[in-house]
Design a protein around this nucleic acid. Sequence first.
DNA 1: ATAATATACGCAATCGATTGTTGTTTCAAA
DNA 2: TTTGAAACAACAATCGATTGCGTATATTAT
Lengths: 344, 344
Amino acid sequence: MKKKKEVTIYDLAKELNFSPSTISRALNNHKSIGKKTTKKVQKTAEEFGYRPNALAASLRNNTTKTIGIMMSRINRPFQASLITGIEKTARKSNFNVIITQSDDKYENEVKNAKALYDARIGGLIVSLGMETQDTSHFDQYVKQNIPIVFVDRVPESFNSYRVIIDNYAAGYRATKHLIEQGCKRIAHFAGAQHVNVYHLRKKGYLDAINEHGLQVDEELILDLKTLSFEEGKKATKKLLKLENPPDGIFSANDTAAVSAILYAKEKGIKIPQELAIIGFNDDPISRIVEPTLSTVSHPAIKMGEISTKKILEHATRKLDTAVSEITMLDTEVIVRNSSNRNLK
Amino acid sequence: MKKKKEVTIYDLAKELNFSPSTISRALNNHKSIGKKTTKKVQKTAEEFGYRPNALAASLRNNTTKTIGIMMSRINRPFQASLITGIEKTARKSNFNVIITQSDDKYENEVKNAKALYDARIGGLIVSLGMETQDTSHFDQYVKQNIPIVFVDRVPESFNSYRVIIDNYAAGYRATKHLIEQGCKRIAHFAGAQHVNVYHLRKKGYLDAINEHGLQVDEELILDLKTLSFEEGKKATKKLLKLENPPDGIFSANDTAAVSAILYAKEKGIKIPQELAIIGFNDDPISRIVEPTLSTVSHPAIKMGEISTKKILEHATRKLDTAVSEITMLDTEVIVRNSSNRNLK
DNA sequence: ATAATATACGCAATCGATTGTTGTTTCAAA
DNA sequence: TTTGAAACAACAATCGATTGCGTATATTAT
């Protein structure tokens, strides 16, 4: 178990007859070091294969070039893409990315917040879990001036960066689209209403209905806890049994929308003629299911990029955390066959 | 930008009139510290809200409680699930997980290997990129006795842990299944043949064909570089144009298999009656496409768990890296409608 | 009672980079 | 030639935990 020693600034100092301080500053292009010296040091560092020990620097600076991520579950298309965007952007600036997942359990979220804090992350990117209502587990970050970016599922109020999509407009437009296709009784698979994204989508839905001379029917609005495949199926079943069933469904996610398509088809209902359906997220399945699912697309990778940039700016410029900045991205209604009545 | 100081072992030492060494040892349950002392220290640490500074320990020990992950792309179902398994298992042992993705580019893979090395990770879990043939960028880890686990896409020979599925058997069984359904001319969408998993699946396919009295027809074997949707479609087109088209397809992944289903259906070919199809991976889309796609399931999360356990064992017991241990997991042929001719 | 062995704990160096302070050169202007 | 400023570089403390070695006290055996 012999380990080859790494090259340190002390080795370079000895070689060049400078002090370690000078080496350190030269490597960081500090202005108090002469140009020739700086160049010489960097050249030698290169030759010696010097690689800075980030741990030492982190210990000294009490912060790391690491971004922590908190997600509910990473093996879902949206979240995976979010992480992809984060990781790519972070790595360009030599930041590492630590991930955690909460399984949508509040308890895990609190634990993970602590774990990441202990890892001395330089910034945090969070998409809240379903259960989370209280956000005090993030207070410690604020106290230490560690930047937090909430993405997508964000808290109502928290002095931090927030990167979101315009869920209200998205819900409005998706619903409007169904109305334009001639739907008169549009159902809505809503998510848990204490989660902002679902709340806003529903609000958009409601306003669209009202503003187009249609009637909101509470019977057609189903709050699904997790918007899972099973829940979607059950909900569809319930809707179809109604005396006056809907002729359109706006589902707050694709999973439930797909289950609606499959179940309705099974019951011999024609999509989109008898029942037009639109989902949310533009998951890969939406292109595969038949009929292909109309949906609302999320710029997931971009959201990851933007979130990361916020952190990086903050970390680099050592800004103060007393910011509350909201970046709102646009969504796009993607019309596919499950809602397009003008096809044939 | 005032920062509240964290509690350190020095604070505890002062409080309890012990030396920092004693505190450190007591917190680590070192045997050279008395029982009462240990208990007292731990109690006080708890009261004071002491949280160890992992950076300091890492610097001293020259290793971190962090596992590095190298993947080609994390927003794909299999890889995302793999990471899920890794992260969950790691966190239970207070290890963090750093992820990197190469986009299947060799250059990125080399860069990421360096970046993770610089981060002083305690172990590495890798699924090789498509382009990777040379693995010398991992040599530095071996030299430093840092454990490496290759998962799924592993190198032919490398003195390390490898966690894989039995690709040969999987390919054999998938093909055999098609034969049992009455297929006589079975095509194969093979992946890049320098990647072990695809090579083995093809081998299983070939042997199954031969051992069941069928004829291997090179015309029916298509090496798809990336097994993408587009490639799959093109390949299917080519196959269907053949004078003597196939009556079955075994695709080395689900994406290409799904594209085959969609294209064939578009051309009016009946699945599975005229063309039976089986994929690989059990991606979510396989349950959605119509007909639902038969496939081979990968125990992705479990693979992540096992890989992580290997690392943890190694890190905890400080074993030597001179191991070459292969863990082979079983797969399961999942018969759905795209290949089941006995349905109606 | 004394030597021998445990047991319990402290000293101080160490990991590698950073940085406020201080000291020395260098060069130009007076 | 002197003086002042700017440029350059070194000293030494610091971040917090770990650990080899050494010492002091307690326990046991003889």
